[in-house]
Design a protein around this nucleic acid. Structure first.
Lengths: 213, 213, 213, 213
DNA sequence: AATGAATGAGCTTTCATTCAT
DNA sequence: TATGAATGAAAGCTCATTCAT
């Protein structure tokens, strides 16, 4: 048997890593980070505890890589022209993607938000380079609203963020109480996009009211 | 010397209990629930570890009582006529209070939201009677929007909740990054109230735009 | 109100003490000594923990007094002429009393035997004066069998003791499996007494055999 | 270096497990179950506390496994043809083994009897499958005496059990007072066997008496 | 690369005992 | 005499991490 090339080795390593990270993410989401043990993760991933430490230097490092990888992945989807400028179309697309991600990567959000709330963890996350990008995006949104002539762009960005994250939180923490139906999510998304597209129609609490008159 | 009266004992117990709960809440918020040890709480509260167990049967029980007590306290402020009916004025007042609480009881929210994200913890919280009240409130809001002629009350309630909770989350998790200024909070609140009061004006992203044309 | 006489005080003290001891014995028997807490005992006795320490200087001391008091009480019933001599009648009476005690003071035996098996506890008990009496009684029994012309009195005493204690153990530890009926106990006692009274008939395993012939 | 084979691991586990159980049994016997700490056991076994929990999920579980293993081991020795039938020879052999075990496994008995007396522990033991076997044995003995024409087999079995267990108890709890000599044990055993073999001669308190007349 | 036995620091929890009142 | 809040030493147990194989 010819020895594997170093390239093959690297590939194997990478796929093992993802496998571990996926497993861990699922467990973190289901059981909570603190409640998960290395033994649980290793067992579910079908490897030994020792091997896990071959790939990640600590439980915390494993978490960090999961968070970073998730953020990067998301970021790549959201990444606009990087010209710092956002067209209406791009913003619409951005929102659409965010909503899709919220559904598809629910596990990830669950963990991400959960940890965001743990003060000590947050401090760590904040220092990561990817988070800088998020702050950049915040600026891009600010610019968008400024260019559209909004008087108080910060307020607009805050509301948009709040709407989206608020929905995210609702989705996540009502999971055990009541499932938010997909149709409601779609309507929600539609409304948010309307709000941006068409300010006249876009009253947050009145989309269907005009019929009334 | 005669022993303390049972009244005195009760007073001691109650004040000690609150003292411990306050201390614990502060620490949970600052350090995260998982990261806090009983020793830390006891030390900060100036008592022995043993005494803590005289008042709470476990760390988890301590947490539960904190959550329950906070929810109850909040609930009392929010509680409307209980006639199941909500006037516009009451809704306005409700929102105002929610915004005030968000600022005044930030520690509480930090812990509460943080735990809401921990799956196992959430299951516990959901079963508590106080949470039933929250569900009741949800119905009251639904009724309100229905009576106002909204076509899709569930969507409206969801958006209102998302807006408020989203702001809450923003407030909390941006704490270490950037402080949301009080003026922004006020504007946010004003906007939300406008949205409800006056549907024509209440476009979420345009309150100040009409002047522009 | 006239102050109580010191005699009255002493009476009150004594009755309180017995009350605590009775309660503790019952609990020890039901829950096991190690598993019982001072708090449990005090609560069941309707007094405060502090007061218990007013009467007994430690949990261990409480146990010791219970054991000692039980042994003394039993001993008084068994106490023969003290002339070191035992008539057949006295031995018969002795056995009868032992059997009665086994039923009436089951709680006590349960605790007593249970503790006898705990090495460290045993060491303590053995040093108590009452136990010396037991050893004395052993001698008296030895003498009895010697005088009756038995070749190996030690063996006889051992067998008698084993029979009685063995029944005691059976009674106690089969409690949760199967109750030994009173009639069986009576038959057992009758047999033991026969064994001593009438050596010809007293085959341990043959009371009903004569029909066989 | 290649990792250990699963066979090697199994061997390590098994030998470690017995090592811990042996150590614990000895300590339980010497110090009493309640008085023994995990730290003591681990130290005496030359391992860390943590490792102990790698093999036994709790102190109580460790105890249970010790008891179960002892009972099983004993049971294998006692197990007759399983035809539910007991010949005189088999019964004799049974008694012989019991007496030998009493001497050889004194530590075990000490712990076993000691715990039998602790109510809460007993409940646990009783539910174990091995104990069912003991009940089965009880039935076999009953059958034996019935077939031999005894009028009250239950009484006979009770007496036999009491004799044996009573001796066991005597052996154990007189350990600190006076050692029962081996010769006495032999005589005791001989007498019990005689009692069964030869009903005419087998008077419990008179084996050597007939010469006297 | 791969294993899981082994470690040990540190956690939650218990409870006999003390003590101010 | 009587209370129960308060203590603190010590227990059982957990688990991230290391390491010999």
């Amino acid at each position: 048997m010819s020895p594997r090339t170093s390239h093959q080795f690297k590939e194997i390593r990478e796929s093992r890593k993802s496998q571990i990270m996926d497993t861990a993410l699922e467990l973190f989401a289901r059981e909570g980070y603190a409640h998960c043990t290395i033994a649980m993760i290793a067992k579910k991933a079908g490897i030994s505890k020792g091997l896990l430490y071959n790939y990640f230097e600590s439980k915390e490092q494993l978490l960090n890589e999961i968070l970073e990888s998730g953020l990067t992945e998301i970021w790549e989807l959201l990444d606009p022209d990087k010209d710092g400028d956002l067209s209406a179309e791009e913003l619409k697309n951005f929102i659409h993607i965010v909503f899709r991600l919220m559904r598809d990567k629910r596990d990830y959000w669950l963990v991400y938000f959960g940890l965001l709330m743990q003060p000590k963890v947050m401090e760590q996350i904040v220092r990561r380079p990817v988070v800088k990008n998020i702050e950049a995006y915040f600026q891009i949104l600010m610019n968008y609203f400024k260019k559209q002539g909004y008087e108080n762009p910060l307020l607009e960005v805050t509301m948009l963020s709040a709407l989206i994250e608020g929905l995210g939180v609702l989705m996540i923490y009502t999971k055990d109480v009541v499932e938010i139906p997909d149709t409601l999510m779609d309507q929600f998304e539609e409304r948010v996009i309307n709000l941006i597209n068409n300010r006249q129609e876009g009253q947050i609490f009145s989309s269907s009211q005009k019929n009334e008159k």
